[in-house]
Amino acid sequence: MMTIRPDIGKVVKERRKELGLTQKQVSELSSINKTTISEIENGRFIGSFDIFDKVIGSIDLEFIVRRKVRRIPNLDELEELFGDD
């Protein structure tokens, strides 16, 4: 499940490359600044949903909203979070 900006950015970057597009070309297709495309791909974008929507729409992606699944982390996940490093 994709819930954080870096995960979204990774999918955007993979899709852009799959289509053989540069960030500049996505910028032109979406009418969004190239710097913003880079911020999205690197998980640092904190702007509006409208901007996200224009960018992902320009590369044939869409947001899907669904009910959040809550679960308790297992022991391995807890160890990874709080282990002695």
Score class of each variant (00 low, 15 high):
residue 33 N to M: 05
residue 64 I to W: 08
residue 53 D to G: 01
residue 66 R to S: 12
residue 73 P to A: 00
residue 48 S to W: 11
residue 40 I to K: 01
residue 53 D to C: 00
residue 64 I to F: 10
residue 42 N to M: 08
residue 79 E to Q: 10
residue 58 S to Q: 04
residue 54 K to S: 05
residue 24 K to Q: 14
residue 28 E to T: 07
residue 56 I to H: 03
residue 42 N to W: 06
residue 69 V to P: 10
residue 52 F to T: 00
residue 35 T to F: 11
residue 67 R to D: 12
residue 15 R to G: 00
residue 34 K to P: 09
residue 38 S to W: 13
residue 25 Q to C: 02
residue 46 I to F: 15
residue 20 G to A: 03
residue 85 D to C: 05
residue 70 R to H: 14
residue 62 E to F: 13
residue 53 D to M: 07
residue 71 R to Y: 14
residue 42 N to L: 09
residue 25 Q to A: 07
residue 82 F to S: 02
residue 35 T to C: 05
residue 6 P to H: 03
residue 46 I to G: 15
residue 62 E to V: 09
residue 40 I to A: 00
residue 33 N to L: 06
residue 56 I to Y: 06
residue 53 D to Q: 10
residue 66 R to N: 13
residue 79 E to K: 15
residue 42 N to I: 01
residue 82 F to R: 02
residue 51 I to M: 08
residue 68 K to R: 14
residue 72 I to R: 14
residue 80 E to P: 04
residue 65 V to T: 11
residue 34 K to M: 12
residue 18 E to Q: 14
residue 5 R to T: 09
residue 58 S to T: 01
residue 24 K to D: 13
residue 25 Q to I: 08
residue 34 K to E: 12
residue 19 L to D: 03
residue 40 I to R: 03
residue 47 G to E: 06
residue 1 M to C: 07
residue 11 V to K: 13
residue 1 M to V: 11
residue 24 K to E: 14
residue 36 T to S: 06
residue 33 N to K: 11
residue 46 I to Y: 15
residue 73 P to Y: 08
residue 41 E to W: 05
residue 8 I to L: 15
residue 76 D to E: 15
residue 20 G to W: 09
residue 79 E to I: 11
residue 39 E to I: 01
residue 9 G to K: 02
residue 10 K to G: 00
residue 58 S to H: 04
residue 28 E to S: 08
residue 26 V to G: 00
residue 67 R to K: 15
residue 30 S to C: 02
residue 83 G to D: 09
residue 1 M to A: 08
residue 79 E to A: 09
residue 6 P to K: 07
residue 61 L to V: 04
residue 46 I to A: 15
residue 72 I to V: 14
residue 7 D to C: 04
residue 28 E to R: 10
residue 79 E to S: 09
residue 13 K to H: 13
residue 30 S to A: 06
residue 21 L to I: 02
residue 84 D to M: 08
residue 52 F to Y: 13
residue 37 I to R: 02
residue 9 G to W: 05
residue 40 I to C: 00
residue 1 M to P: 10
residue 41 E to P: 02
residue 22 T to V: 06
residue 76 D to L: 09
residue 78 L to A: 02
residue 44 R to G: 03
residue 13 K to W: 11
residue 7 D to A: 07
residue 16 R to W: 06
residue 69 V to M: 13
residue 44 R to I: 05
residue 71 R to A: 06
residue 78 L to E: 09
